[in-house]
């Protein structure tokens, strides 16, 4: 490849039905690039959890995905409420999701732990009242 490929998505915070379209698009693009299926699965799961979080916790946001020869970097930024206690939020089972979200199959408090589990690097930058930016990297 040699060069860097960038993909950008705007995530609609009002439409749970369409949540995951960006992750699906990235999955297709990575398949077209012929990347290893385990790498693609890791990226897809991590990005999908992040995309769902943007919709259920932060009213949408933006996602940028860059692909180089050595890794795939996902940057998910929102201008939502921020995460008051990141350490707590990272624990399996911790969730502030409403009952309504749980009835849709999410809100089990596994999203952030999943994102960490499936990526090689993950960094959360968050400010209360301003928003959250999560950067994740998967090595190819």
């Amino acid at each position: 490849m040699g060069e860097v490929l960038n993909f950008r998505y705007t995530i609609d915070g009002d439409d749970f039905t369409r949540a995951g379209e960006a992750s699906s698009s990235v999955k297709n693009k990575l398949k077209q690039l012929g990347l290893d299926s385990d790498v693609i699965r890791k990226v897809s799961i991590a990005m999908y959890e992040g995309e769902i979080n943007m919709v259920i916790h932060a009213d949408g946001g933006n996602i940028t995905v860059s692909v180089t020869d050595s890794d795939i970097t996902m940057v998910l930024s929102d201008t939502g409420p921020g995460i008051p206690d990141v350490e707590k939020a990272m624990q399996e089972g911790y969730s502030t999701a409403r009952a309504e979200v749980r009835s849709l199959g999410f809100g089990a408090g596994m999203g952030l732990p999943n994102m960490k589990k499936y990526t090689d690097e993950m960094h959360i930058d968050t400010t209360i009242g301003k928003g959250t930016t999560i950067t994740m990297k998967v090595h190819i």
Binding site: T17, R18, A19, G20, S24, K27, I52, G105
Partner: peptide
Amino acid sequence: GLCNPQVVRTAEMLD
């Protein structure tokens, strides 16, 4: 037993 589009999306992500 869950029935919404995210079931299909989840399946897609996991192949």
